[in-house]
Design a protein around this nucleic acid. Structure first.
Lengths: 248, 248
DNA sequence: ACGATCTGGAATGAATGCAATTTTTTGGTC
DNA sequence: GACCAAAAAATTGCATTCATTCCAGATCGT
C-alpha cells in the first residue's frame, strides 16, 4: 500500500509505535481502527510533509472511504498530537519546533524511567534473561559498527522494558509519544558521533546492571538521564527532510 | 489576514464548559472542541454509570447537535481511554477494574515524578514561593481537619508542580490521566484513615524540601512513592456511586 | 499602475438518509 | 413454565447532501 520503499531511511531510535488506542483487552481488534492505524502510519512514514495540508478529498479516494470516517480518524490523530486541526482551515501535519521536540524527549524519558522502575518490580528471570540476550546482541552490533543492528537492538531493549512494566496505559502512552517522535530522524548522526555511541553503550551497561539488581529507583534515574543524553545528541539536525506528498 | 473580528460564542442553553485541559496552548481555542470538553465533563462528572451504554441519540438531543460531531467526539474520548467503543455495539463508559486503577495510579506517579524533576530545573523563586504558600495553606487545612480545603490545596500543589515543569505534552498527558482517575473517588476515606493523612502530610514536607533544594532526582523519587502510598490508601473503595443519567 | 473590494469556486463543518448489524419482542415447542 | 428460534424495532456505521467559510482571480477605484 504505502510506497515507503522510495526512501529507506533509518528514522527510528526510540521505539515502535503500534496500536495506541485499543485499550480494551477483551475487544477483538476492530473493523475501522484499521483506518486509524493506516492513516497514522501514512503520516508517520512521512508521506506528508510537516506543515502540509492534509487534503480530505485526496485521502478519501486514497483509502477508498468516505469523508465521515476519515474526519473521525483525523480528530483522533489530532488528539494524539500528530496533526493540528485549524478551525475552518483543515488539518495540517504537526510541525515540531525545537522546544517541542525537547519536551517530547523529556516525556519519553519520564515514561521510560517509570517503565524501568515498574519492570524491576515485575520482571521475571526469563524476562531479564531475554533483555540480557538482546543487550549482548546489541553490543555485538556495536563492535561490528553495525548501526542498523544496533538501533534495532536498542529499540527492542527499550520496548522490552516497557513491556516488562506490565502497565497497559503506560505502554499505550509510550507508543503514542514514540510515534510522535518517529518523524524526526535523529538517528543517523550516531555514526559521526562515535563518542556518543560509546557513551550510550556504557549507559546501557548501567541499565542492564541496575535491572539485574532490580534497583528500581536507580534504574529510573539512569533511564531518564540516558534519554536526556540521547536528546542532546539528537538535537543536532532539526529540519527533517520533507518527502513528496503528491502522488496520483 | 486573520479576521480580528471573532465571531461571538454560541452558547445555547447549556452552562459554560471550561475545558479540562486545553491540550493545544498555542492554538486559538476552537469551535467544536467545546462539545468534546462538554462530553468529557459529562462523563467524568459521573452522569453516566460505569459500564452503561452511551446512547448517541439521547446525547445528541441533550447537546443539541447532530450525530456526526458527537461520534467524532466519542472517537476522541475512546482514544483518551474514557470510554470503550465496541464494534457495532456502541460506546460504553469505561469501567475501571482494580488492576487498571492500579496501573493508572502508577502512570500518574511516573508523570508527577517527571514533573518534579523538570520543575527543579525550571522553577523560579516566585514559583517556588507560590507552592510554599499553598503548602502552608494546606497544612493549615490539615490542622483544621478541613478535608475539602486539604484536597483543594493538595491538588493545587501537584498542579503547580506540573505547571512549573514547563512541558506542554506532559501537562496534557497528566490532565488526561487525572481525568480518567477522577471518576473513582478515593478521597472520602482519608477522614477514617488519620494515619495516612499524617503520612501524606509528612511526604508533602519532603516534597517541599526537595523542591526548595532543587533536588530533582530526589524529588522525583519522593513523588513516585507519594503516589504509590496514595494509591494504596485509595485502593479500598472501588465501585464509585452511579448518578442519575436521566435529566430532562 | 497599484491597491482594495467583490465575486466565483473549492473545501470544510454539520445534518440527513440509507444499508447492515444488533437487540428485543413475540411466537412456538419441549 | 422454560428454552429456543425468528421477525420486528432500534441502533450503529457510513455515504451522501446541504450550509458556511475560506481562498483565488477578476474588477473597480484612486
Amino acid at each position: 500500500m504505502l510506497d515507503s520503499a522510495v526512501q529507506p531511511v533509518i528514522d527510528d531510535g526510540t521505539a515502535g509505535a503500534q496500536p495506541v488506542a485499543p485499550a480494551a483487552a477483551t475487544s477483538a481488534a476492530s473493523l475501522h481502527d484499521t483506518l486509524l492505524a493506516q492513516l497514522r502510519d501514512y503520516i508517520v512514514e512521512g508521506n506528508l510533509a510537516p506543515g502540509a495540508r492534509v487534503p480530505e478529498r485526496t485521502l478519501c479516494e486514497r483509502f477508498g472511504i468516505s469523508r465521515t470516517p476519515l474526519r473521525e480518524a483525523l480528530k483522533v490523530l489530532a488528539s494524539e498530537g500528530l496533526i493540528d486541526l485549524l478551525p475552518n482551515r483543515g488539518a495540517r501535519v504537526r510541525q515540531l519546533e525545537a522546544h517541542e521536540m525537547v519536551a517530547l524527549f523529556d516525556v519519553m524519558g519520564g515514561l521510560e524511567a517509570l517503565a524501568g522502575r515498574l519492570a524491576c518490580e515485575k520482571i521475571t528471570e526469563a524476562g531479564y534473561a531475554e533483555i540480557e540476550r538482546l543487550h549482548h546482541a546489541m553490543y555485538a552490533s556495536y563492535l561490528r559498527r553495525d548501526l542498523h543492528g544496533y538501533f534495532a537492538g536498542n529499540q527492542a531493549i527499550h520496548d522490552r522494558i516497557v513491556q516488562a512494566a506490565g502497565n497497559e496505559p503506560l505502554a499505550a502512552t509510550y507508543a503514542n509519544f514514540a510515534g510522535r517522535l518517529r518523524r524526526v530522524r535523529y538517528a543517523a548522526n550516531l555514526d559521526k558521533d562515535r563518542d556518543r555511541w560509546g557513551e550510550a553503550m556504557r549507559e546501557h551497561e548501567e541499565i542492564l546492571d541496575a535491572l539485574r539488581r532490580r534497583a528500581g529507583a536507580e534504574l529510573s534515574d539512569i533511564l531518564f538521564r540516558h534519554l536526556r543524553n540521547k536528546r542532546r545528541a539528537a538535537a543536532v539536525q532539526e529540519g527533517a527532510a520533507p518527502v513528496d506528498a503528491s502522488r496520483a
